[in-house]
Amino acid sequence: MTVLNVNEKAYEIDASKDMPLLWALRDLLGLTGTKFGCGVAQCGACTVHLDGEAVRSCVTKIERAVGKRITTIEGLSPDSDHPLQKAWIEFDVPQCGYCQSGQIMSAAVLLRENPTPTDQDIDDAMAGNICRCGTYLRIRAAIHQAAKMQREGKKS
């Protein structure tokens, strides 16, 4: 038995230590917000936080995640009220929506580490996440907006 700490809950699973975290989350824990897109760390749809870092869960074996804090899109905020989630809605970012969990999880690390990201910083953080609908410009605008909301939220 392996214990995974996901979104501040401990889950006991019976799986090979080599199993990618993506499939443990989706197929064993039923947390389907994290998406399968390529399986080879090319598209970022499977991005989750492992001790706060935006790992690609499709290539991250569960043995690496044991004893670490795993956060998925379902656990990013208590009420879907992370500044990024609010900004995503405000800017009509999602289209098909399939990649957006990964996009938001990547952007969350950017915002935590850089509260005032430039366009270049956004490129540097987000180029690992593919969106076939091409929502990139709205992602960029929403990240700027979320950064603003985050700064203003902290001031008040």
Binding site: R26, D27, G30, L31, T32, G33, T34, K35, F36, T72, I73, E74, L76, S77, S80, L84, Q85, W88, I89, E90, D92, V93, P94, G97, Y98, Q100, S101, I104
Partner: peptide, 20 residues
């Protein structure tokens, strides 16, 4: 504004892949 934006930003939207 898109009516499906919220569920597509919090993991709730169900795609075919998510059927369980």
């Amino acid at each position: 504004k898109r009516l499906d934006a919220k569920v597509k930003t919090n993991g709730e939207a169900i795609f075919g892949m998510d059927i369980q």
